[in-house]
Structures are given as structure tokens and as C-alpha cells.
Amino acid sequence: MTFRNSVVTALCVAAAAATIIILPHVVELFTIINATIYASMAILTLSLALVWGFCGIISFGQTAFFGLGGYAYAVAAINFGDSTPAIALALLVPTLFAGLLGYFIFWGRVTDVYLGVITLTVTLILYKLFNATAGDAYHIGKAALGGFNGIPATPLMNLPWDRGTTLEPEDIWYVAATLLCLAYAFVRWLLSTKLGHLMIAIRENEHRTELLGYDPRRIKLAAFTIGGAMAGASGILFANCVFVSPTMFSLLYTAQVIVWVIIGGLGTLAGPIFACFLLQMITAELGRLNWLNPNFVLGIILIAFVLLMPSGILPTLQRMYDKITWPILLQKSVRKRPAQ
């Protein structure tokens, strides 16, 4: 890493840390809880940005792992009375499920649209199954699954070394925001490793990667499983700041994550995170203002976006940045910038 990159990275880390720590002291509780929700959804978005943007896997099923993580946490926390083993279990369940589903899909050589359909269908199956669990008959241990209403009283996380001390909303914000930063750093690191390069190679040209002797099924399985684990983690956070219900598996959430990745820029990491925060804030604000129907306004914004800024926010901003800075930087050379 060059010196300039190191400085920029250090500044970003400092800025992020500052924001995370200062935020609870300058805004009200309601905003903090919202921010926590956005942060957990951002991790979910990051998982799709990795799996789709960098490995080319059109997964409409990240919300399946999201919901499984949430439900696994709620059920485990209620039964164990301690959040630490609950978190461990809740990470295991979606990861395992992602591994199995991935094996099922990739060893069957299912690709693009058909892969999208299978992942979407799996999410839908989970939605319908969990939706039908109303009544006392449906429970796991001490935890009633609650059907459409979900599990309202999910125990919040407690300190790992002291199960009596439950975390406050501000603390959960710290955990969520830090986890988001760590997740981002992790994915960036992953993409710089050989496995990460192979994921990108698969996305660019799977056939050629095969001909070089790499098994694309294993690489895709790795990406898919890691993405599933991340989505599961976001589900655990979500369970701690909202509550667990079949809505976590809904088509609405599935589509929203996809929209955020596309708007943020497919093939980037920071863009989708940014888009996730931005669009949720816009939606919340529209709901508050109650000026026009929020769905209507959001829909029009999306359509306008596609027609005007199709490659996503980040790439468009990057291009604008390039257009402004390149001429300044290259005043000496006569080199012509290649056409976009």
C-alpha cells in the first residue's frame, strides 16, 4: 500500500471511529435506534455486494440467511438465557444453510436467472413456513415462533462475561457500527487475497478460470457461504434493534437490498452501503412528511435514477471526479483519456 493510501485509510478509520462514538451523544434515542437498523441492513447489503458484485452470483436469497440468523438468535437467546452462545449458534445456522444451498446450486451448475429463482424461492419458502407458525404448537424449546407476529420479546445482547448485564441501545449501536466497519474491512481484505481475485475472475470469465484449472464451484461456494454468514450476522443485529418476524424473509426486504446494491453501484463496496443508508433515510423522511405516498415518491425516484444515472451513484461520482481531476493532473502529458 502506498503512503498516500495509508494516510487516506487512517483518516477514514479515524473519521468512522469518531462518528460512531460521538453519535449517541448528539442525537436522540430514536435516531440511534434507526441508525442501528441502517447499520445492520448495511451489513446485509455488503453481503450481496460481495456475492453479486464481485463473484457474479445473482443471489435473491440473502434475506433468507438474514431471517435465519435473526430467528436462530431469538430462539437460542430465549432458551439459553445468555446471548453469547446464542450469537455463536445464530452465526452457525445461516452459514451452514448457505453452504448446503450453495452446494445444491453450484454443483448443479445452475447459473444466473435460474440461480436467482432458486434463491428467491428458498426465501419465499422460509417466509411461508415461518408465517404459518402461529399457535402454541410451534415452538423450539421455550421460544414460541409466533407465526406472522414473530418473536416480540427477543432478549438483547449481554456482555459476554456477565450474562446479567444487558446492552443498552447505545451499546448496540456501537456493536453494529463497529461490526459494519469490520465487515467492510474484512471484505476489502478478502478481495485482495487469492480467493478474492479468483472470485473476480469467476465473475469476469468463469470458463477461462476453469481452463486454468480452478474449480469455479468451490470458489462460488466460498463466496456464497461467506455472504450467508454476513447476512446472518446482520440478522442477529436486526433482532437486537427491531424484532424477529417473517417480514425478515419478505420480498420487500429482498428487493430493497438488491435496489441498494444497484443504486450504490454493482461492483463496488462503499456505494451500496452509502445507498442503503441514504435510501432508508429518504424513505423514513418521506413517511414522516406524509406529503405524497412514500411508495409513489420512491418509485419515481428509482425510475428517474435509472434513466439518468444508470451505472450507480459511486461509479457516476467516480467518473465525475475523474473528469474534473484528470485534466488537472495530466496537464503535462498529451495523453488522451480513453473513451468510457
Binding site: 435496489v259 444497484i262 411508495n295
Partner: peptide
């Protein structure tokens, strides 16, 4: 892009009909 635009259309239609 088609996915995004038609998802926007879907939202807009639901919103308009609700209104």
C-alpha cells in the same frame, strides 16, 4: 437497470393506487 426501473414502477403503482 430494467430490474431497478420496474421495481420503481411497482412501488409507484402501489403508491398511486393507494392514494
Amino acid at each position: 437497470d430494467t430490474m431497478l426501473a420496474t421495481w420503481g414502477l411497482s412501488l409507484a403503482m402501489v403508491g398511486a393506487v393507494t392514494m
